[in-house]
Amino acid sequence: MTHTVLVTGGTSGIGRAIAAAFAADGAEVFVTGRGPETVGQAAKELEVHGVVCDGTDAGQVASLAARFDTLDVLVNAAGGLTRPPAEGASLDEVLAVWQANLAQNLISAVLTTAAVQDRFTDGASVISIGSIGAERGGGAYGASKAALAAWNATLSAQLAPRGVTCNVISAGYIAGTNFFQGKMTDERHQALVEETHDKRPGAVEDIAATAHFLASSGARHITGQTLHVNGGAYTTR
């Protein structure tokens, strides 16, 4: 039976790699993004369904949810980094930065999950993409990702009785994405690699493989968790 998978923010980076992994496994995959051109290009290249949707817009999210009768996997990969306000910024500028980070990294996941949760099948999975920044004082971005993990714990308690697992993948430094918006230097790259135990940057495929596992039958008793995929740059025990 073909699984139905929805990957928000699936047009680039981690989201795109996750969509590709599920598509390669024969799933019917839907990816979302805010730009019609990027959505169309990703859908064509990955041979998946593309939907233009801003996950912070309740009306657009409701329209997205209406496309599904049932849903087996939801991956909340939409998000991004809004740069901190400059020194001496006005309160309005500070507010705008915090609201943008919370909207992109938390509210989009909350709205999308709330919109589709009645369509989850028994054995469905919700996977949200977090960040090592949640553990490292990452300003508004880190705070929004920490809030994502806190929300996930509550979501798991709500949905687990229905057989739905809910987990966060907390990604460390992942090379080859546009997260740093062209501002990654060789020195910064090397410093981030040196923090790891395995002395390599993460790849989008590392996160995609973890997401694919969390949606598998072998992960049915894993829920309410934050899984750190960072090569040892941040360790738990």
Results as ranks from 00 to 15, higher is better:
69 D>C: 00
197 H>E: 11
118 D>I: 05
150 A>S: 14
98 W>Y: 14
18 I>D: 14
48 V>P: 10
230 N>Y: 07
179 F>Y: 10
111 L>S: 11
186 D>P: 01
113 T>D: 13
133 G>M: 14
203 A>R: 11
76 N>K: 04
127 I>K: 10
169 I>S: 12
185 T>P: 11
96 A>S: 10
209 A>Y: 07
93 E>D: 14
143 A>K: 06
90 S>T: 15
99 Q>L: 08
169 I>L: 15
117 Q>M: 04
31 V>E: 10
215 A>D: 05
43 A>C: 03
45 E>C: 01
146 A>R: 03
102 L>A: 15
233 A>I: 12
42 A>G: 02
102 L>H: 15
167 N>Y: 12
24 A>H: 04
16 R>H: 08
42 A>F: 02
204 V>R: 01
27 A>E: 07
25 D>Y: 07
1 M>R: 15
140 A>S: 14
237 R>V: 11
100 A>F: 02
223 T>A: 09
189 H>Q: 13
123 G>C: 09
30 F>Y: 15
160 A>P: 06
192 L>P: 11
233 A>H: 02
107 I>S: 05
178 N>W: 03
213 F>Y: 14
108 S>L: 10
100 A>K: 07
121 T>M: 10
87 E>C: 05
160 A>D: 09
225 Q>M: 01
227 L>T: 02
214 L>R: 08
141 Y>T: 12
38 T>G: 05
81 L>Y: 06
169 I>N: 13
195 E>M: 02
106 L>P: 12
51 V>L: 04
176 G>Q: 06
37 E>A: 01
42 A>S: 01
114 A>T: 10
185 T>H: 07
131 S>A: 11
199 K>V: 03
237 R>S: 13
57 D>Y: 00
41 Q>F: 00
175 A>M: 07
200 R>G: 06
111 L>C: 06
134 A>G: 03
49 H>N: 10
31 V>F: 01
5 V>T: 10
3 H>V: 09
141 Y>I: 08
47 E>C: 07
96 A>Q: 12
158 Q>K: 08
132 I>M: 06
114 A>P: 00
122 D>M: 04
61 V>G: 14
80 G>Q: 05
142 G>P: 09
110 V>R: 03
142 G>L: 12
130 G>W: 04
42 A>P: 03
77 A>Q: 04
20 A>T: 06
18 I>L: 15
179 F>P: 05
23 A>H: 09
68 F>A: 07
222 I>L: 11
162 R>N: 13
147 A>S: 00
93 E>H: 08
173 Y>K: 14
85 P>D: 03
5 V>L: 06
141 Y>H: 05
135 E>C: 04
151 W>T: 03
7 V>A: 15
44 K>M: 00
132 I>R: 08
116 V>N: 08
95 L>N: 02
111 L>H: 08
217 S>T: 02
107 I>E: 13
88 G>Q: 01
85 P>A: 12
126 V>L: 10
152 N>V: 06
2 T>K: 12
101 N>D: 15
70 T>V: 15
53 C>S: 14
11 T>R: 00
169 I>W: 05
168 V>L: 11
126 V>A: 07
5 V>C: 04
77 A>H: 05
100 A>S: 14
206 D>K: 04
179 F>H: 12
129 I>F: 05
119 R>N: 09
80 G>P: 08
149 A>D: 00
221 H>L: 09
183 K>C: 06
236 T>F: 02
234 Y>V: 13
164 V>P: 10
